[in-house]
């Protein structure tokens, strides 16, 4: 983590409405070296009985990560680039506080290892100036990693939003979600 080639002008843009549920990202995610070849990304049907809508979720890399704050073992840390890292394996005690408290439902408890693992934006790749695995394979560009200029050119009718409202709580994140042009936030409840 000491010397890196992390590109600060590159950002993550997610548009779950474009997700077609192909699960290519799941396969790609398992190729990431930092998660021991376990897939960390989530693809799920939103309401299987009534719609074929699927959604995709990567870690949003919150500015003030709830996951890290609720961790009793100080196992989760945020680095200088704003990347919120997966659990420190020697510290995590597998309590699942982070799994249950993350407002986006991101961390995964690996029961067999008694350990939490989560998306760290493919830190082995992003720290070397490359794109995260999932974003390189997504055929519908529900997952996109690039500069603000690129996304503005590609999606003139959308605005990247990184403010989310959950009842009383407002969460801001490093990762953006593409919303209708002019939006300032996404109100979940």
């Amino acid at each position: 983590m000491e010397t890196t080639a992390y590109k600060t002008d590159m950002e993550f843009f997610v548009d779950m409405q474009r997700c077609i549920g192909c699960r290519a990202c799941e396969m790609a995610c398992a190729e990431c070296e930092t998660n021991g070849h376990e897939s960390m990304i989530h693809v799920n049907y939103v309401e299987r009985s009534t719609t074929i809508q699927t959604t995709v979720q990567v870690c949003m890399h919150c500015d003030d990560p709830v996951c890290a704050k609720v961790c009793p073992a100080d196992a989760i840390s945020k680095d200088d680039f704003g990347v919120v890292h997966s659990a420190n394996t020697s510290r995590c005690i597998g309590c699942s506080n982070c799994v249950m408290a993350c407002p986006f439902g991101v961390p995964k408890k690996q029961e067999q290892y008694d350990l939490m693992m989560k998306c760290n934006m493919c830190y082995d790749r992003t720290s070397a100036g490359k794109k995260p695995m999932c974003a390189t394979v997504c055929p519908s560009q529900a997952l996109y990693y690039g500069t603000r200029e690129e996304i503005a050119r590609m999606r003139p009718n959308s605005t990247p939003v990184n403010t989310f409202i959950f009842g009383q709580l407002t969460v801001t994140t490093k990762v953006n979600i593409m919303m209708p042009k002019g939006s300032t936030h996404l109100k979940v409840h």
């Binding site: 779950m16 409405q17 989530h42 799920n44 939103v46 309401e47 809508q53 959604t55 979720q57 799994v99 249950m100 993350c102 407002p103 986006f104 439902g105 991101v106 961390p107 989310f164 979600i177 919303m179 209708p180 939006s183 996404l186 109100k187 979940v188 409840h189």
Partner: peptide, 15 residues
Amino acid sequence: PEGKRSLLAKAHLAA
């Protein structure tokens, strides 16, 4: 966690 992800997707679709 799955419920939370689905709620977000529903809110996104609604928007």
